[in-house]
Measured scan of single mutants.
Amino acid sequence: EDDHHMEFCRVCKDGGELLCCDTCPSSYHIHCLNPPLPEIPNGEWLCPRCTCP
């Protein structure tokens, strides 16, 4: 699979289990988001950068 997502968290710059945005290459740990997510959501997810007006 050709995955163009970042291999590190945009916030802390560390790797591991990352949540990938469905519209851009950004990846995040769920605990690095503000507010943090309790678990990885099902379905499409947009990062804070893509949901800002």
Rank of each mutant, 00 (worst) to 15 (best):
C9Q: 02
L37A: 07
G16H: 01
C21D: 01
P41N: 13
C20G: 14
C47G: 02
P41G: 08
P35S: 06
P25R: 13
C20M: 13
C21H: 01
G15K: 14
H5E: 14
E1F: 05
P25C: 10
C50G: 02
N34I: 10
I30N: 10
D14E: 15
P35H: 04
E44D: 08
D22M: 06
C47K: 03
S27K: 10
T23M: 10
C9H: 01
F8I: 12
C20F: 11
Y28N: 03
C21R: 01
P41V: 08
D22I: 04
P38L: 09
E44W: 04
H29C: 05
P48D: 09
C20H: 15
E39G: 11
P25E: 05
D14M: 08
D14A: 10
T23R: 13
P38K: 14
F8E: 15
P35Y: 05
C9A: 01
H4W: 09
F8K: 09
E17Q: 08
E39A: 12
D22F: 12
H4N: 15
H5S: 08
M6R: 04
D14F: 05
K13C: 08
C24N: 00
E17S: 07
L18S: 02
T23E: 13
D22S: 12
K13F: 06
T51G: 08
G16S: 05
G16A: 03
H5N: 12
T51S: 13
K13M: 07
T23I: 11
L18I: 05
P35I: 04
P35N: 05
K13Y: 05
C47Q: 02
L37E: 06
G15F: 06
C12P: 00
T51Q: 11
L37P: 13
H31K: 13
P38W: 07
C47P: 03
N34R: 07
P48C: 01
K13G: 12
S27Q: 10
L46E: 09
E44T: 09
G16V: 01
P35W: 03
C9W: 01
D14H: 07
E44Q: 09
D22E: 11
C50V: 01
C47T: 02
T23W: 07
C12W: 01
K13H: 05
R49F: 10
C32A: 00
E44A: 10
E7V: 07
E7W: 03
N34G: 05
H5R: 14
L19S: 05
C20Q: 15
E17G: 05
